[in-house]
Design a protein around this nucleic acid. Structure first.
Lengths: 316, 316
DNA sequence: GCAATCGTGTATATCAAATGTATAGCAAAG
DNA sequence: CTTTGCTATACATTTGATATACACGATTGC
């Protein structure tokens, strides 16, 4: 009998020479020895040679075949259904599946889930890394709408339900604000673009929502001036005048039920020139829906449509 | 009865041959198995064949149709209203919707044109700004495929035609390389991902193509080691062994016609373990198409499909 | 306007088949 | 003598199918 591991052997036969014990074959194919035996018993996927005392000995060809079957199986195909077909066909199916997957747009769910996991772990740097990766992978818009907003909503729910503490929520907020600040700066915008002033009124300290909107606006090529949080109406109006803002947007989350923000908004509306639209977004915005000269923003989609409507320059 | 996966079948019937289980069909169409069943039950969108125990088996044609319906549905059209119409009509609706959408958000053409303009102006920082804005707006993949590659091709043509000097081309190259380096670093990848070794062989000094491929690989969550340009085969092989690379990719543009790169590639293929695939991309890659154990990459799509096929870890 | 209705994605329960994993007893290898 | 591998059986998990029900936004009707 020909010795195993014969290096004088030509590479053609080499490929069919039984050499590997089940452990090695399983590991290379990405399976467990148990599964290898089960597949052989049930579907005869391969017929490895046997050693003198009955141990299976797999050839490189066997391993190739097993490896292909393993990938197709993990890819959603029932092993039993593909067990009987030729190597060439297996290869074709694999190529097909790979093509189909590559052509598909990347999954936003994965990014979302990872971000939520990182936020739960109270791990700022990790969260930042996950989020910045998402932005680059998906592009700003998809990121904002399909990753960041859902993540924030999820965290909000968990916080309401008492499953995460205030510290965790705060860490996440700060991290996300840093990322948004970077994003807004990085996206920049050429001078000559329509100018938008953004802020939150007195009594409102939550910046997150407005920053998300600001990022979307910058993406749509507005030149956004971010004034900050908790600003009195006069200052906002003064800044709008100074900047020659084409629109002013406030973010309001406050659920305190007090009348302060309402008075602020009414005063701001009085102070601003009529031709400058005043937009209000955030979960607390619906309280202003009947104020004249004020547009309430429902969500990001709506926001983009609105600012497009109010843009002084008409762009194709 | 005719066996499934009959490779003697002509490609025409192939398209209607039921081969795919519901999971694969759903994944390819971008839906869930539940939705597939609901659509079939309610609207008879497709009529998949059944296996011996009743499982649905979808043909490629079925999947095409489902995929179109899915895209239209996600685009806001009611499934029930489009369920009964012909494939041709579906296609028409899709292009219609795509056009409407393109009119709304800044298109990839805009980004491309701006980048080309900046490159023509010999303005590195401006080019960098335009490109990084594109990445953030569009996401890496779209950026690479629809902005960066066209820009580079355009510049190449202008250079060939003598309309831009070597200085201009060099400035652009350096700027783009900087951006890609930033991108690759920023995208990062968690340890545990499949490892890819990338380099250009001796005699090849153009890094751009490989870096684009590297960025795409990093986006697809490979851990890419970028060795650099102009490396002898032994060093690449040694690095591959040291890193435990799952695949090695070379970029070859050289049009010198000399035999040097060919010898290098052949030697590298000898030095690498057989199980490590050797991929070659770039405009000079086609010269290696008949080498055994070497895969020639046509374009980014093909590249992504290939690396996915060779990935040792299976991700849905 | 506002309420009733419809359309549509998703969840539940139940069943059967497919498939992965564990157990036990024995033989052989290191 | 411990580990590995073999067979055979049993068990558990997952998947797919059908049928029904629910939730929520959109549409329709008054």
């Amino acid at each position: 009998m020909r010795p195993l591991y014969d290096n004088a052997m030509d590479s053609e036969n080499m490929h069919h020479e039984p050499r590997h014990p089940i452990r090695v074959a399983a590991s290379r194919a990405g399976l467990t020895p148990e599964v290898l035996r089960a597949w052989e018993r049930r579907y005869d996927v391969v017929s490895p040679a046997r050693g003198d005392t009955g141990q299976r000995l797999y050839s490189d060809g066997d391993i190739d075949r097993l490896s292909m079957l393993a990938r197709l199986s993990h890819g959603g195909r029932a092993v039993g259904r593909i067990a009987g077909i030729s190597n060439g066909e297996l290869e074709r199916l694999l190529t097909e599946d790979a093509d189909a997957h590559a052509a598909r747009s990347p999954s936003t769910e994965t990014h979302r889930d990872r971000a939520i996991a990182a936020a739960r772990d109270l791990d700022g740097p990790a969260l930042y890394a996950v989020l910045s990766r998402s932005v680059l992978s998906l592009g700003v818009l998809q990121f904002l709408e399909q990753v960041l907003v859902p993540v924030i909503e999820e965290l909000g729910q968990e916080w309401h339900a008492g499953r995460v503490g205030i510290a965790r929520e705060h860490t996440a907020s700060v991290t996300i604000e840093q990322l948004l600040a970077w994003l807004i700066r990085e996206l920049g915008t050429a001078p000559g673009a329509p100018r938008m002033l953004m802020a939150t009124p007195s009594g409102e300290r939550h910046a997150l929502g407005s920053m998300i909107a600001a990022a979307a606006a910058v993406h749509d090529e507005w030149l956004v001036t971010w004034l900050g949080v908790d600003l009195p109406a006069e200052q906002i109006a003064a800044a709008a005048e100074r900047d020659g803002a084409h629109a002013v947007t406030l973010g309001v989350v406050a659920t305190c039920g007090c009348e302060a923000p309402r008075a602020e908004v009414e005063e701001l509306r009085r102070l601003l020139p009529v031709r400058v639209p005043l937009l209000i977004g955030g979960s607390g915005a619906s309280a202003f829906s009947e104020l004249p000269g004020v547009t309430v923003i429902r969500d990001l989609q709506h926001w983009r449509a609105q600012i497009r409507r109010h843009s002084p320059t008409i762009r194709s």
